[in-house]
Simulated assay, not measured.
Amino acid sequence: MSDLSKRRLKTWIRLLGVTRGAENRLRDYLRREHGTTLPRFDVMAALWRRREGVTMSELSRMLLVSNGNATAVVDRLERDGLVQRESEDGDRRRIRVRLTPVGLTAFEAMAEGHEAEVDAIFANLSETDLETMRDIVMRAGRQA
Rank of each mutant, 00 (worst) to 15 (best):
V54H: 13
S66C: 03
A72K: 12
A22S: 15
F41A: 13
R139N: 06
N69H: 14
E131R: 03
E58Y: 02
G21K: 10
R8L: 15
D119F: 14
Q143G: 05
D80H: 04
E115I: 05
D119K: 13
M110V: 09
M133C: 11
L15Y: 12
E115A: 08
F41L: 11
A140S: 06
A106C: 11
Y29R: 01
W12I: 14
T105Q: 14
M138S: 07
V18P: 06
L63F: 02
F41P: 14
Q143H: 07
M133V: 15
N69T: 11
E115C: 07
V102Q: 15
E88D: 03
R25P: 03
K10E: 12
V74H: 00
V65K: 09
R96K: 04
L82M: 05
V137K: 07
V83S: 00
I136L: 10
A140M: 08
L15C: 08
P39W: 04
L130N: 09
L9H: 09
D28V: 09
G141Q: 07
M44F: 02
V73K: 01
V54E: 07
V43F: 00
K6V: 10
V102S: 13
M138F: 08
A46I: 02
A111G: 09
L77W: 03
R27I: 12
S5C: 07
E23V: 15
R14K: 14
L130Y: 08
T71L: 13
G35N: 06
A123R: 05
A70M: 04
V73T: 04
L63W: 00
D91S: 04
F122P: 05
E78R: 04
T37V: 03
A140N: 07
E112C: 00
E117G: 06
R85D: 02
D91M: 01
G68I: 06
D42E: 14
D119C: 12
E115W: 05
A120C: 07
E127M: 10
R7T: 10
N124Y: 12
L59T: 01
R32L: 14
K10N: 12
M44S: 06
V18H: 15
S87E: 03
A123Y: 08
E88I: 06
R93A: 01
A70I: 02
A116S: 14
A106M: 11
V54P: 09
L30Q: 12
G53R: 10
G35A: 03
G103C: 05
R32F: 10
